[in-house]
């Protein structure tokens, strides 16, 4: 005899698995279609390719005029790495000072930050785009990277974390004659690491996946990130090439999925720690 609890668990796992399959389906479709021949990809009723082919990938990487994929990936690495590093570093020092030090004009600054969080991004987006256009920085890396330094959320998360975090250790180190830089480096940084990893991942994701902003400030094919390049291909002349499109999608999605799988453990922890009250 099966207990009622065990039966419930089996039903639950079954339901969860059906949902999981639906969630995986677009990924499965994406990967398998990218290995299909043209005819097969347009008429198939099976997810599995009839004959496996690499032709979609070969063509994607060969068309360096319409889809300079390697260049796109390089641009993406440059933009995401520098943009994330920039935001984390300016946010960490600012949040630390606002939480622990006697910063002149603190109330004024915090007030500004609250407005920065409350006012929707759409309000500043187009004027900022116009400014970049006026100073001739369209189709450069600058507009893709620099605005990342003005994000407020990371400061907010580090600040709230530090407010709940005991400061005895920092004070003891200070009395022993350690400089503020040393305290920041050896005491504060290790303790805020989980927040930095989660927020770093979210910043990375935002930069990697950004579409609206980058479509405004970049319109040359060779300056695009892989996310933007994929949009150009989707809107372009690939109306009857599902295999090629899915190959491009796989290439665009693979790096971010790998980072996701690697960071998953930390993200979950970060969610529980910086969870909203």
């Amino acid at each position: 005899m099966m207990s009622k609890k065990r039966l419930n668990t089996i039903i639950l796992v079954f339901v969860a698995s059906v949902i999981a399959y639906l969630f995986l389906l677009p990924f499965i479709f994406m990967v398998f279609t990218s290995f299909k021949e043209l005819e097969d990809s347009l008429t198939a009723t099976s997810l599995f390719p009839k004959r496996w082919t690499m032709e979609n990938y070969v063509e994607l990487f060969r068309n360096t005029n319409s889809s300079p994929v390697v260049r796109w990936l390089g641009n993406t690495v440059l933009v995401t790495v520098t943009g994330t590093a920039l935001r984390l570093s300016v946010s960490t020092t600012a949040a630390y000072a606002l939480s622990r030090l006697d910063v002149p004009g603190k109330k004024f600054i915090v007030g500004g930050l609250v407005w920065g969080m409350a006012i929707p991004e759409i309000v500043t987006l187009f004027p900022l785009f116009y400014i970049f256009k006026q100073i001739g920085m369209i189709n450069t890396y600058w507009p893709l990277i620099l605005p990342s330094g003005s994000g407020v959320m990371v400061i907010y998360y580090i600040y709230t974390f530090l407010q709940d975090f005991p400061m005895e250790l920092e004070e003891a180190a200070y009395l022993d004659g350690a400089s503020i830089m040393k305290i920041l480096r050896y005491i504060v940084l290790p303790s805020i690491r989980p927040v930095l990893v989660t927020q770093g991942f979210i910043t990375f994701l935002g930069l990697y996946n950004n579409f609206l902003w980058s479509s405004l400030v970049v319109n040359q094919t060779k300056m695009q990130t892989v996310t933007l390049g994929l949009a150009t291909l989707t809107l372009g002349e690939n109306d009857n090439r599902p295999g090629l499109m899915m190959a491009a999608t796989v290439v665009a999605v693979l790096p971010v999925l790998l980072v996701f799988l690697f960071a998953n453990k930390y993200i979950v922890r970060g969610f529980t720690r910086s969870g909203i009250k």
């Binding site: 677009p26 994929l230 989707t234 491009a248 665009a252 999925l257």
Partner: peptide
């Protein structure tokens, strides 16, 4: 974790 452009091309 995937971009809206990947969501779009797939759908």
């Amino acid at each position: 974790s995937v971009s809206v452009t990947a969501v779009a091309s797939t759908f």
